[in-house]
Amino acid sequence: MFAKFRKEVLQRSADDHSSGEPHVLPLKVYFIVFASLMVLTVVTVGVSLLGLPPVPSIIAAILVAAVKATIVAVFFMHLIAEDKFYSVILVSTVFFMLLFFGLTLLDMDSRGFKNPEESLEYWQQFSHEKALTEEAAPE
């Protein structure tokens, strides 16, 4: 289905280019994408006001951002009309990024560090000690 859409867009831009030179997308496409981006920005703010619990809220925010990012990449950055290898580069980069996030967060989660009260106590105590030693030895 995406392949068909891609073909359609490329065909419509066929009049604007000559052989060997890259496809030029019709002006309409740019303005439609821009309008969508504006709408999605409103959605971004709207989603945050929905009052979702923390984890779904962050996932929703990231999903909306991902949609915006995808249309910027596909249209503004011209991926739809370019050598498919550039898309491969982008997708593999995102994949490795997600790998980094995923495995590290998995470690954080299964370690049971989630103890903000204890950490806050430690910080306050340490800062208090730090403040004391600074008082005792002024510079």
Binding site: F96, L99, L103, L106, D107, D109, S110, R111
Partner: peptide, 18 residues
């Protein structure tokens, strides 16, 4: 090679699962 970095951290306090 991108999937094995934690083997430098087995005794660091990293979770057993990972």
């Amino acid at each position: 090679g991108f999937l094995v970095w934690g083997h430098h951290m087995f005794v660091s306090g990293q979770s057993e699962f990972i």
